[in-house]
């Protein structure tokens, strides 16, 4: 039996340094290695690259060593699975490039699997199912209600490119959807791999992550700052969701209670 893929799962853990070549050739080699590892180490029987985005952090210095982490898994309409993976290309001084890839893969027939639901939508932050679960958690969270008691608006986060709009009014969470009717007051963009780190770190490291510039906000800067504690509380709830849903490395299944007041 091979395990299912899950966000937080590390790939290319034992990968050797890449052969010298162009940056694009290195990216292609990484994609090929990931495809092979996904098929060999999960219950997917295929894995085809459907998108790739290469971000150069600075001039590349060889040799490069790749590592990677699964950031989202989402069942698609054709009974297949979309797997999103971020690969890091490290040189002697750290991460020189970030490669974000998406694969689509086929799963075996249900009879060949030993579990009824191979991939839950909870494994994809920003999916319809994930949004619904976050809505439930936030609606039951009295601390979060207190933090939005004087707020009439929509907080936006974007996780790995998927928008999540959290519409609030007087302490109530009205909806958590991909797009609220009037949009969001602000959107905090969190790359998929950064979100995985937030889900799997020992403590909620939202503020540290923001301070080192790994997340970027757009829209109303005033409302973004005003909602600082609310955003931290959203991450608390998302961490509990991740622990329950089986993100690899997520160990928090109850909502933490570190609060300002």
């Amino acid at each position: 039996m091979t395990p299912p893929l899950a966000p937080g799962q590390r790939l290319l853990a034992a990968a050797p340094a890449l052969a010298p070549g162009s940056t694009l050739a290195s990216a292609d080699a990484v994609a090929t290695a990931l495809r092979t590892e996904i098929i060999d180490s999960s219950d997917l029987v295929s894995a085809d690259v459907v998108s790739a985005h290469l971000e150069l952090k600075r001039p590349i210095a060889e040799p490069l060593t790749p590592t990677a982490v699964v950031t989202a898994i989402l069942p698609d309409r054709d009974a297949g699975v979309r797997a999103e993976v971020t690969a890091y290309l490290d040189d002697d001084t750290g991460v020189a490039a970030v490669l974000r890839l998406a694969f689509t893969g086929a799963v075996p027939d249900a009879g060949a699997l030993d579990r009824p639901d191979p991939y839950s939508g909870l494994l994809c932050p920003g999916s319809r199912e994930w949004n619904a679960e976050l809505h439930r958690l936030l609606s039951e969270d009295e601390s979060f209600a207190g933090l939005i008691e004087s707020y009439d608006g929509t907080l936006g986060i974007s996780i790995g490119g998927r928008p999540v709009h959290i519409r609030c009014y007087r302490g109530q969470v009205l909806e958590v959807v991909a797009r609220a009717i009037k949009g969001a007051d602000f959107v905090l963009d969190i790359p998929g791999e950064v979100f995985v780190d937030l889900m799997t770190s020992g403590d909620n490291s939202f503020m540290e992550t923001a301070m080192v510039g790994k997340m970027r906000s757009a829209g109303s800067g005033y409302e973004y700052l005003r909602m600082t504690s609310a955003l931290i509380r959203i991450i608390d709830n998302a961490r509990a969701l991740a622990g329950t849903a089986g993100y690899v490395g997520a160990h928090t299944t109850s909502i933490e209670t570190q609060q300002v007041a």
């Binding site: 503020m207 005033y222 700052l225 005003r226 909602m227 600082t228 504690s229 300002v260």
Partner: peptide
Amino acid sequence: STPSRSDRTYWGTRAV
């Protein structure tokens, strides 16, 4: 121009 100043001082201090 500076909302939630106390909150941000609290969380920002913790972060470092």
